[in-house]
Design a protein around this nucleic acid. Structure first.
Lengths: 219, 219
DNA sequence: CTCCTTTTGTTGAAAATTCAACGGATTATT
DNA sequence: AATAATCCGTTGAATTTTCAACAAAAGGAG
């Protein structure tokens, strides 16, 4: 566990918690670490929503696949972000999404009941964890609002430009790398891939953006 | 305040709080009640995100209007639901949405700092409120997932059927009233109103649904 | 370095959505 | 009860998106 401390102390779940207490807390929470290769399923849709996940290395995606096989990407998560926490905390019986390794990654899994309910020991830290979870879930809600703002646009062009503008604002720079390849970006924006490629080319020709692979620049 | 107790004791924010303590807590939170006529703005986009709202009577809508004037409806809220709590708890500087009265309504507004931070008095209840907020925001996140699941479908028909199916599941009945008129439903599904009307007619002709105004039945 | 796989851009045709406009129906107002 | 305002379904044209197929480019494996 020790080698993960540098990541974990930056994790929103452990905000305001002293580093020297962290190892003890992890023990009390019965935290486990697992490794996953690229494309492997970390948490499967339909399985019990009892775990709070933390990305320690690599990256993962939250996805949903409908009965037609269409993939929808809800978000991309990187260290030291938390995932699946809302489902666990809302005590949803089963997960409505899958979490997939986007590259080889190490994931910490914590049974949410260990976080939400006290265990009888000296659990001074529970209140802080619950407060942190509340903040974290609230922040995620904001991100979902952004995704809805993006996908509520009616055209591929507007969806893309809204996404890029928000990303630039977040990155605080007009030039940045996005965490998606073309198909993934299409699945995030909820549009057709070939149409998206065509629209990117058009925006380039019009001199509104520059783009090479997943590097974009707003002009 | 007394006349609102019956609603407030059912409010997710006050879960597990004894009714006899509620009035005192409301005082400590400095809760205010305001009335709004239909179509009036309860909280405006861009204003500081400091209030947690509770619908005491009537109903309200969370909406977003883009630079083209297109309205997007994020959700419809009825008593005793809470709103704007995620923005307040995430300490977002300003609201990215507006809250509008959908019919005449009474709204309780609470400054979120009174909830999140202790005031020096006998604030035994803060921990419970924070726990309740966490649960409530987590539940809202699930609802956003549902909205994304609906709007990620590529056709008006699929969006509508997904919406109706989820609504029927929620209502636990094949027949139900939705809280939207046609234009509002279109703005929730993120589609064109006239196209939506046409699609509803088509589904009726095909015998897949029955519908009169805002009453729907899945066949 | 070569072969194989995956990703990406392009194209054209089919299908769907949007848009504007209109009339009928319903609801609210005076 | 009459009038005004709003809501709703329909239509056809214009625009967009989707879909399928293909070839070029990039990346990975041996």
């Amino acid at each position: 566990m020790k080698k993960y401390l540098n990541i974990l102390k930056k994790c929103p779940l452990f905000e305001q918690i002293e580093e020297e207490n962290l190892l003890g807390i992890l023990g009390c929470l019965n935290a486990k670490v697992e490794s996953f290769d690229k494309k492997y399923t970390i948490l499967a849709e339909g399985s019990p929503a009892k775990y709070i996940g933390i990305v320690l290395s690599g990256s993962a995606q939250i996805i949903q696949i409908d009965y037609n096989g269409n993939r929808s990407i809800l978000s991309n998560i990187t260290p030291p972000q938390v995932f699946a926490e809302a489902f666990a905390c809302a005590e949803t019986p089963s997960l409505p999404v899958s979490v997939i390794a986007d590259e080889p990654c190490e994931i910490m899994l914590i049974d949410c009941r260990r976080v939400l309910y006290t265990c009888g020991n000296n659990c001074f830290f529970h209140q802080q964890l619950i407060f942190n979870l509340m903040k974290d879930i609230a922040t995620k809600t904001i991100l979902f609002h952004q995704k809805i703002e993006i996908t509520s646009k009616r055209s591929t062009r507007e969806k893309l430009m809204t996404y890029l503008s928000l990303y630039a604002k977040e990155a605080n720079a007009p030039s940045f790398d996005i965490p998606f390849d073309r198909q993934e970006l299409a699945d995030y924006l909820e549009v057709d891939r070939s149409g998206l490629s065509a629209e990117i080319s058009k925006l380039k020709r019009e001199g509104l953006i520059k783009c090479q692979k997943n590097h974009f620049e707003l002009l």
